[in-house]
Design a protein around this nucleic acid. Structure first.
Length: 349
DNA sequence: AACACGTGGAG
DNA sequence: TCTCCAAGTGT
């Protein structure tokens, strides 16, 4: 008699064989390319990553190419994708692979896990997909699918339920045949991303519907249980575009800034009066209002007021004139890119 | 353990 | 418009 877990694996893999989406990172087992895709996919939707992955791989086809690239260039490639620390860590890890592993991506789970920006999920994903190692990759999809399968109604943020679901995933992985471990990792996530989605699962099409305890109990749509998040803080911000001879006044954020370190930005402050004072401009300087937009960063919702001014002539401390034609080649904060776009001076990164 | 870190799409 | 939240990691 076949063990039930092996049956579940077979059902999932048969479904995946037919319903697998054709994604660019699924045409290779090159650990470098798998790794780049997994880092881009951290907390980021497939549709979003698709707009970046091809260009990134074209610019940096190998780990050596990435390691050799200047840091600001890698950041510019990442501009608009979010969670920018990922780009820094990816770049640092590439240099580590070149220096510590002689340019060959490590094949051992523990060595992979030690690289910056690679945690338990990414290490397991690369191990299973690129090296066929039996490591269960637990992302949000996997937790949701398995919480429903087991009808686990505990708060998913707790350590105990996470451990239980991890163990279930690992038992399924252990029942997966060699050569199919990467497919199992991808299939479990694919099921969560396409059918076993939050709030409105399509159980009618699910290969696991007949063995799903959450479906039987009617709890599937509300699983996994998660405590509500806190409401966003709201903040006003004034941004000013000061032009001079086709260039705009900008400054570089400090390398240790918590948000978008090393990125360039337009002059901005909590309010217009503060901003003018910081720039050494008269409080009654002539400004044109160029509109307002909102932008959320994690739990903060910014309302951004954009102003336009002509140059007062002198260069405030810490600022530089940046050619607007250059704006695509340097990393620019999203708020500044949106402000420039509001004036049709440059498209957002 | 709790929190900070981006962005865009869906309902 | 608003809320939720997606292929997580580091501190």
């Amino acid at each position: 008699m076949t063990p039930p877990l092996a049956d579940r694996v077979r059902e999932l893999l048969e479904w995946f064989l037919v319903n697998r989406r054709n994604l660019p990172w699924r045409y290779t087992r090159d650990p470098y390319r798998v790794w780049v895709s997994e880092v881009m996919l951290q907390q980021t939707r497939v549709e979003t990553v698709l707009a970046f992955y091809g260009r990134f791989i074209e610019a940096y086809p190998t780990v050596d190419a990435l390691a050799a690239a200047p840091r600001h260039e890698v950041l510019a490639s990442w501009a608009g994708l979010g969670y920018y620390r990922r780009a820094s860590m990816l770049h640092a890890a590439a240099r580590q692979v070149v220096e510590v592993h002689a340019g060959r991506f490590p094949s051992e789970y523990d060595s992979i896990k030690r690289l910056p920006g690679i945690g338990e999920y990414t290490a397991a994903a690369v191990s299973s997909i690129a090296f066929d190692e039996p490591r269960a990759a637990m992302d949000g999809n996997a937790y949701r699918v398995l919480a429903r399968l087991a009808d686990d109604r505990r708060d998913i943020r707790g350590a105990a339920p996470r451990k239980a679901l991890r163990n279930l995933a690992q038992r399924l992985m252990d029942a997966t045949r060699p050569g199919e471990r990467g497919d199992f990792s991808e299939a479990l996530m694919e099921l969560g991303a396409t059918l076993c989605v939050p709030r409105v699962p399509r159980c009618d099409a699910c290969p696991w519907v007949s063995s799903c305890a959450g479906h039987a109990a009617g709890t599937a749509p509300s699983l996994p249980v998660k405590a509500p998040r806190r409401p966003p803080r709201r903040t006003e911000i004034a941004v000013v575009v000061i032009q001079y001879d086709g260039r705009a006044l900008m400054r570089q954020r400090p390398p240790d800034a918590s948000i978008m370190p090393g990125f360039w930005e337009l002059p901005n402050a909590a309010g217009l009066a503060i901003l003018l004072r910081e720039l050494g401009m008269p409080a009654d300087a002539r400004l044109y209002s160029a509109g307002t937009f909102s932008h959320a960063i994690t739990d903060t919702l910014y309302t951004c007021h954009v102003y336009e001014a002509t140059s007062s002539g002198d260069l405030p401390d810490g600022y530089r004139w940046v050619a607007l034609a250059q704006a695509r080649e340097i990393p620019i904060t999203t708020i500044s890119a949106k402000a420039l776009a509001a004036l049709s001076l440059a498209e957002p990164g």
